[in-house]
């Protein structure tokens, strides 16, 4: 069986290697990839959309539908993780509390949940003492990460970046809080409800900008129609429209990252974990 598998793999690899000979040479001017529509994008992108980064203008303007449904796919992934993993448990479980002054740990089995107090702190079942260095560095670092994420989103017109990348960095900053403190601290910052609302808000912003174009008399996602409400020419309106769309993408990606992390790490309880 092993030899049969090996023969099949070698044969398939040989056929693939043989087929690569028919590819056009790298960077050939007459290859299909650089003849049909890409020269037009490369030449006209700057004068039509005023976006120096051609990748951004193709992604969010010329291929706006594709990106909109990509955002929807990410939204569906978040909703799918939520639907598969989230558990709403009615009966209270074991909980651990720590008396802050004396560092004595209490284990409460089921029954009544104690009220919140400043003397006791709820801890995870697999609790390890907070590390001062990691905690402090993460606390100092998170604002810088978020600032950088906003920069990546806003600067996608000029440099590599955009909504997807910036959204992931924003989500990572919140996940860093969940790792360095605990999950309840992160959920206190962005609650589950807010997070799920933000997931839908991003897609709504994207599709809403498209519909706004439709209302203003242009095609769906043709941002030049926005020029009447943005008080700018149609070319700058396309540039601003791309920016608005990127913000929507960023919000969705951030919220989905946080939601997937919370559901996976806490096994759907959104309570404790990692």
């Amino acid at each position: 069986m092993k030899t049969a598998g090996l023969i099949i793999v070698i044969l398939a690899g040989a056929i693939l290697l043989y087929a690569t000979q028919d590819f056009p040479p790298w960077g050939a001017p007459d290859s299909p990839a650089s003849t049909h529509v890409s020269p037009r994008y490369l030449q006209k992108s700057m004068e039509e959309t005023a976006v120096p980064n051609v990748v951004t203008s193709v992604l969010a303007d010329y291929r706006g539908f594709d990106t909109m449904f990509e955002t929807s796919v990410i939204f569906c992934a978040g909703i799918g993780c939520f639907a598969l993993l989230r558990i709403f448990r009615k009966k209270p479980e074991d909980r651990y509390y720590r008396h802050i002054a004396t560092e004595i740990t209490l284990h409460i089995k089921g029954g009544r949940i104690p009220e919140k107090s400043s003397e006791f702190e709820r801890i995870d079942a697999l609790w390890t003492p907070y590390d001062l260095i990691i905690k402090t560095v993460c606390r100092i670092l998170v604002p810088f990460i978020q600032l950088f994420a906003l920069y990546v989103i806003a600067h996608g017109h000029h440099s590599p970046g955009g909504g997807f990348q910036g959204g992931v960095i924003l989500g990572a900053s919140m996940i860093l809080i969940a790792i360095s403190y605990n999950m309840r601290t992160a959920i206190a910052r962005i609650s589950e409800k807010t997070d799920n609302l933000l997931m839908a808000t991003g897609v709504f912003i994207y599709a809403g900008i498209g519909t706004l174009c439709l209302i203003l008399g242009a095609n769906f996602l043709d941002y030049s129609g926005l020029s009447t409400i943005l008080f700018s020419g149609p070319i700058m309106a396309r540039s601003h429209g791309i920016f608005g769309v990127e913000i929507g993408v960023g919000i969705t990606v951030m919220a989905v990252m946080i939601s997937i992390y919370n559901n996976l790490a806490s096994e759907g309880k959104q309570d404790e974990g990692l």
Partner: peptide
């Protein structure tokens, strides 16, 4: 700042 923290 970060590389020593990660090692730690």
């Amino acid at each position: 700042v970060l590389s020593p923290t990660a090692t730690h």
